[in-house]
C-alpha cells in the first residue's frame, strides 16, 4: 500500500510544483515572456468558467464530429480487416494500401474535405474517418489472424466451417486488438477534428476556438480551449478503457 501511495504522490507533487512555478511567473522569467503571452493557470481556469457555455458548446461539436468520424472510420477499417482475412490472397494488399493512408498528413486532408463537404461537420467527419481507418484495419487484421497456436487445428478437428471459425474463434480473439485500435483512434480522432477545424469554413468547434482566440490575441481563451480539449481527450480515453475492461475480462492485459 505504501508503494502505491508514493506512485501517486511523486507525479502529483511534480505536477503541482510545475503549476506553482507557472502561476508565479517562473516560466515567464525563464523564457523572457510577457504575462499576456502566457496566461497563468488561475487565469485559464477563470476564463473557462466565465465562458463555460461557449466553450462547452464548441467542445460538444468537436466531440460529436470526432466520435461520428471515428465510428465510420473504424467500421470501414474493420470491414477491410475482415475482407483481408476472408480473402487472404488479395485482401492483404488492400491492407497495405490502407496503411499508407496512415502516413497522409491530416493538414493535407482537411482542405480536400473542405471541398467535398459544404458543412463544417461533414468535413470534420470526413477527415476523422480517413485518419481512423488505418489503425483499425491493421490492428483488427492482426487480431483476426494471430490466433493462439493450434486453435485453428482444434476448430478443424470439429470439422467447423469457415463461418463457425470466424464467429467462434476469430471474432472473439480479435477483441483485444480492436480495443487497442479504438484507444489509438480516440486520440487521433480528437486531433483530426481539431486540426480540421483550423482550416474549416465553419466558425465553431474547439479548433476554430483555439485559432480564433489566438488571432484576436485572447491567449487565456486559447489556453482554455486547449485545457478543455485535453480533459475531454482523457475522459474519452478512460471511457473506452472502462468498456474494454468489461468486454475482455479474460484477456491477460486486464489482470
Amino acid at each position: 500500500m505504501m508503494k502505491k501511495k508514493s506512485d501517486i504522490l511523486w507525479p502529483l507533487g511534480f505536477g503541482a510544483v510545475f503549476l506553482i512555478i507557472w502561476q508565479l511567473y517562473g516560466f515567464h522569467r525563464l523564457l523572457d515572456l510577457k504575462p499576456f503571452q502566457l496566461p497563468v493557470p488561475s487565469e485559464i481556469i477563470m476564463t473557462i468558467f466565465k465562458n463555460l457555455e461557449k466553450v462547452s458548446g464548441d467542445c460538444l461539436l468537436t466531440v460529436t464530429g470526432a466520435i461520428a468520424g471515428m465510428a465510420i472510420g473504424s467500421a470501414i477499417g474493420f470491414a477491410v480487416a475482415v475482407t483481408a482475412t476472408l480473402f487472404p490472397k488479395w485482401g492483404y494488399g488492400g491492407l497495405t494500401v490502407i496503411s499508407a493512408f496512415n502516413a497522409i498528413p491530416i493538414v493535407a486532408l482537411s482542405p480536400i474535405m473542405n471541398r467535398w463537404f459544404s458543412t463544417g461537420m461533414g468535413q470534420k467527419i470526413g477527415v476523422v474517418t480517413v485518419v481512423t481507418m488505418a489503425a483499425m484495419a491493421i490492428n483488427a487484421y492482426r487480431g483476426l489472424n494471430d490466433l493462439k497456436p493450434f486453435s485453428l487445428d482444434l476448430m478443424s478437428s470439429y470439422a467447423a466451417d469457415k463461418r463457425t471459425v470466424f464467429f467462434r474463434l476469430r471474432l472473439p480473439s480479435c477483441l483485444p486488438s480492436v480495443f487497442t485500435a479504438l484507444k489509438i483512434n480516440i486520440t487521433s480522432a480528437m486531433i483530426a477534428a481539431i486540426v480540421s477545424e483550423y482550416f474549416a469554413a465553419s466558425t465553431s468547434g474547439l479548433g476554430f476556438g483555439i485559432k480564433d482566440s489566438l488571432r484576436k490575441a485572447e491567449m487565456a481563451m486559447g489556453w482554455s480551449y486547449i485545457t478543455v480539449s485535453a480533459i475531454v481527450g482523457i475522459i474519452l480515453y478512460l471511457i473506452i478503457q472502462a468498456v474494454e475492461r468489461r468486454a475482455i475480462k479474460w484477456h491477460a492485459s486486464q489482470k
Partner: peptide
C-alpha cells in the same frame, strides 16, 4: 519513472497537436 510515466500515458490521450498554434504564437 514515477514522476514522468503518468505524464507519458496522459500524453497519449490528449490531442497534443492542438498546442501547435499556441507554441507558434509563443
Amino acid at each position: 519513472e514515477k514522476i514522468a510515466f503518468p505524464y507519458l500515458i496522459i500524453s497519449q490521450m490528449i490531442p497534443v497537436l492542438g498546442l501547435a498554434p499556441i507554441i507558434f504564437n509563443l
